[in-house]
Amino acid sequence: MHGPTLHPHPKGTLVSTTMRHPMVPAVPPRFVEDIYTPEEIDILFGIVRRGGPWRLIAAQHFSSAEEYMAVSGPKNRDLDRKLELSDLLTPTFRGYFGNYGIPLEGAAHELCYNRKLLDMIKDMHGAKYAAPNSYLFNVRAPAHSYDAGHFDSPSWRGMNKFNTPIWLSSVMAKSGLFEQWELRSGQVIALFYDSDVDGGFTYWPEGPDRPPARFAAPFRNSGLVTHNEKMFHRGEASGPRHKRSIPGLQLDSTIAGAGDDQWVIRNADEEIARYHDSEMRFLFHYGAYVFEDLADAKRYFEHTDDLTLDTALRMLSDDLRRRGVQFDESSHPMHDSEFVKILTRTYDMAPGSYPADAPLDLIGAV
């Protein structure tokens, strides 16, 4: 059995996460194997290889280093050094099989409503109903991992990843102010990385101030059933170590399949890197919302108790004042980098320890 590797926690050194904010999953992740049939794997990889080009994850979700840091936490770096978003880029690209609860690729239609995956997520929560949410994939070339640990973008009734920036969703979750609107969720994550050179999955099942655990590579159509919107986790560095830095990687770089077993990263028409399948790490990420009963589902779908952006920003501002945090009122708080910095610092929460076999890469040290 491919089980997690646990790491001892020094007694008396940390305060329980749940005393300040419950960023703890409903249950710890469960390792699963043979997630997809061979026919399903052919469908999924066919879409990934023949589609594209695919954009960087960072390009799809962030416009500044401050927004990235609000999601991924501190980087054990020189705090006097101002980071740019380009400093944080790794060659990790993303596309979607489905989104908004609907298939975006015709060939993946049945998979978007996969009963096996939905039942796994329902069973994790003991819920009666489940509704597909997003179905995405990551294509990752050899890469360092500057991610100090993050959690997936959470959702609330009325506010979710489709209408709320990820940085704001992360701040809201860490604030602990919005639990009454929380949408419970779950994910089935399938990994394909046929190597034991790094490439594992680190997670903090008892909160970021408790010791981590990890699932080590290789992964062959295996992965986990997990509650990643309430659990800090990170994909570890992967691929041949001497190929993990890509000179010229920029925010608008893309990747696409080439032939039967090659992947090419380009800046516009210029090829800047090329890799073989064996050097790549692939992730298929299926997500669904769960509902305790029909009344719970109706409250979501009929929008009878939605959280709004104005309410969320007012509650955050009120909480800053209660904490004695000084800030200037902004007419455009969503685009005020100083306000983003203040929120990020006020609700700062990130892992403080890492497995010895999967250390955090330091920016500027590799």
Rank of each mutant, 00 (worst) to 15 (best):
K116Y: 14
T202H: 04
P355G: 08
Y193H: 11
I102H: 05
R77N: 08
L85H: 03
Q60Y: 03
I35A: 06
R244K: 06
R210Y: 07
E84L: 11
S337F: 03
G98Q: 01
G101M: 06
I57E: 13
R94T: 12
K128G: 05
M315W: 04
S16T: 13
M69K: 07
V139C: 11
F282E: 06
Y354C: 08
A141Y: 02
L360S: 01
I47D: 00
I166D: 12
E270K: 09
S185M: 10
P247D: 13
A288H: 02
K75A: 13
S245H: 10
P142I: 15
P10H: 08
V48P: 00
Y68K: 02
I35R: 03
I342H: 02
R49F: 05
A58I: 10
D310I: 10
S245P: 09
R220V: 15
P212G: 07
R299M: 11
E338Q: 15
D198N: 10
G324E: 09
F151A: 03
N133P: 04
D296Y: 02
K230A: 14
E66I: 02
I57R: 10
N99T: 06
H21P: 05
N114P: 01
Y146F: 15
C112G: 08
A26C: 12
N221Y: 02
M349W: 06
F282Q: 09
A130V: 02
R299Q: 11
Y289K: 06
F31W: 12
I102F: 07
L313W: 09
S16P: 05
F301K: 13
D123L: 11
F284V: 14
S278T: 14
T17W: 07
A141R: 02
A356T: 15
L56H: 00
L56C: 08
Q187I: 02
D78A: 09
G259E: 05
E67C: 01
Q180D: 11
K75S: 15
H242S: 14
L283H: 02
Y347Q: 02
G52P: 04
R299N: 06
F62G: 00
